[in-house]
């Protein structure tokens, strides 16, 4: 589904990603872990087309097409979804209007007719249950006045509506209390099928108790330095990242 080959990217001339290789197949859950500043969020930006990171080398193909060639909205319409670490507020734009526009853009891209207002509201009611999001949130403006937990639930709610092929969850666990974390994770699990895939970007192993990964990759200093199964996540939780630094770079300060 997604193949990343020797991907290098810079921000303001400073190389952040230094040759990433990754293969994600349908039905798989990949976790990408790593310390602050290792390049996790930059990777999410490059995959979704946020333009502050400049790709200097490498290739990314998604469903057989050159992903880096596409504008961000086409990547989204093709099935890439990002659950934002910090979802923005859009004052005055109602959730209903925003999501209806988004859904109908996806449908237009697939050659499907637009949903009517009543069809859309029905769909919204169905999907609301997945993340236990309340009507008083969906009646408000996009993320406006939402708590941290509500914003993250809202991201998963949008994921449920848009039914992406590849979901990238960027630090979805940050700022969540344990109940909200459970609800978000359950939502993600309910949406999992044999056809779609998920990349979970996280700092901590905690989220991975709920969303169980098939593969765990450690991103450090712009490269995937170690890959393994969920056991690797437990090892990281226990020992921190320093032992990997030592193992990979032969020193504790790898920068």
């Amino acid at each position: 589904m997604l193949t990343i080959k020797d991907l290098k990217a810079s921000i303001n001339g400073k190389e952040i990603l230094k040759g990433i290789n990754l293969q994600v197949n349908p039905g798989e859950v990949h976790a990408i872990m790593g310390p602050n500043g290792s390049g996790k969020s930059t990777l999410a930006s490059v995959l979704t087309g946020r333009d502050y990171a400049e790709v200097t080398h490498g290739k990314v193909s998604f469903l057989g097409e050159d992903l880096l060639d596409m504008v961000p909205e086409d990547r989204a319409r093709k099935g890439i979804f990002l659950s934002f670490q910090y979802p923005v507020e859009i004052p005055g734009v109602s959730m209903v209007n925003f999501l209806k526009t988004a859904i109908n853009e996806h449908r237009k891209f697939k050659g499907l007719p637009a949903l009517s207002a009543s069809e859309f509201l029905k769909l919204m009611r169905e999907k609301k249950e997945i993340v236990e999001i309340s009507s008083n949130l969906t009646n408000r403006a996009v993320n406006e006045g939402f708590s941290g937990g509500e914003k993250k639930k809202n991201e998963i709610f949008q994921m449920a509506l848009l039914e992406p092929k590849l979901s990238i969850l960027d630090e979805t666990d940050s700022g969540l209390d344990i109940d909200a974390l459970r609800i978000c994770a359950n939502g993600v699990n309910k949406l999992k099928t044999a056809e779609n895939a998920t990349i979970v970007i996280t700092h901590y192993q905690r989220l991975l108790d709920y969303i169980v990964p098939d593969f765990v990759h450690v991103l450090m200093n712009g490269q995937i330095v170690k890959s393994g199964t969920k056991e690797l996540a437990y090892e990281l939780e226990e020992k921190g990242y320093d032992w990997i630094k030592k193992e990979v770079f032969g020193t504790e300060d790898a920068q």
Partner: peptide, 14 residues
């Protein structure tokens, strides 16, 4: 805000 919309499939103009 614009990128958030883009990521949901909405073009920059819209």
């Amino acid at each position: 805000q614009i990128f958030y919309c883009n990521q949901r499939g909405i073009s920059t103009e819209d």
